[in-house]
Simulated assay, not measured.
Amino acid sequence: MQRKTLLPSECPIARGLEQVGEWWSILLMRDALQGLKRFDEFARSLDIAPSMLTRRLNSLVDAGMLQKVPYSQRPLRYEYIPTDKGKDFLVVLMAFVSWGNKHLAPEGESVQMVDRDSGQRLKLMFTTIAETQSLPLDRCTVRPGPAASAAMRDRLHNI
């Protein structure tokens, strides 16, 4: 059975899931953004079948999240480097860390978000576009954008 594509959707969440919605893909992006680059490093980290790893890496390359760069000619071998699009996925991963720590870690946090330079703990925050004001998550919502269809405007009308 052919899987439905979410690309035609105007919802940015649906479009994002089309790119990285499979859990192996999200874990591969986590590892790539933490510095893993090579097939064997990903395989070791995730204990994933080689055929599945190949499919997921290829899908992330096709989605523009990773760039495939040769590092050896004999035999031909590649490294997988996050693109700018892939690097921007870090905010999604940090949101997962925050949410998982709050709701899925009764034994305590095994991973914490910290400032790379100072080591100080961080929490997920939003700022206004002008970056003049920090806002807590409960003050954030969504609204129709300039390209929203009538259906999207209706959907978001009551939010």
Results as ranks from 00 to 15, higher is better:
M1G: 12
Q2E: 10
R3H: 06
K4Y: 05
L7K: 07
P8I: 00
P8Y: 00
P8V: 01
S9D: 10
E10T: 11
E10S: 09
E10I: 04
P12V: 13
P12H: 11
I13S: 12
R15Y: 10
G16H: 13
Q19R: 14
G21Q: 08
E22V: 06
E22F: 08
E22Y: 14
W23K: 10
S25Y: 04
I26Q: 11
L27F: 02
R30G: 03
R30N: 07
D31K: 07
A32N: 06
L33Q: 07
L33Y: 08
Q34W: 06
L36W: 05
L36T: 11
K37A: 14
K37C: 09
R38F: 06
R38C: 04
R38L: 10
F39N: 02
D40R: 13
D40Q: 12
D40W: 08
E41H: 07
E41K: 01
F42I: 05
R44H: 10
S45Y: 01
L46N: 15
D47P: 05
D47W: 12
D47T: 15
I48D: 04
A49K: 14
S51H: 14
S51F: 12
M52L: 09
M52G: 06
M52Q: 09
T54G: 04
R55S: 10
N58G: 13
S59R: 02
V61G: 06
D62R: 01
A63I: 06
M65C: 08
L66V: 02
L66Y: 00
V69L: 05
V69K: 03
V69F: 00
V69P: 00
P70I: 03
Y71F: 14
Y71M: 04
S72C: 07
L76D: 13
L76E: 15
R77G: 01
Y78H: 15
Y78A: 12
I81Y: 00
T83A: 03
K87M: 09
D88P: 02
L90M: 14
L90H: 08
L90C: 06
L90E: 04
V91H: 08
V91C: 07
V92K: 05
L93Y: 00
L93E: 01
A95G: 11
V97I: 11
W99P: 03
G100Y: 14
K102C: 09
L104H: 06
P106G: 02
P106N: 02
G108N: 06
Q112C: 10
M113L: 15
M113E: 10
D117R: 14
D117K: 13
G119P: 13
G119V: 11
G119L: 09
Q120E: 15
R121A: 14
R121P: 14
R121D: 13
K123E: 15
K123F: 04
T128H: 03
I129D: 10
I129F: 09
E131C: 09
L135P: 01
L135G: 03
L135C: 07
P136M: 10
P136V: 09
D138L: 05
T141K: 09
V142G: 03
V142Y: 08
P144K: 04
P146E: 13
A147Q: 14
S149C: 07
A151N: 07
D154Y: 03
H157K: 15
N158I: 13
N158E: 15
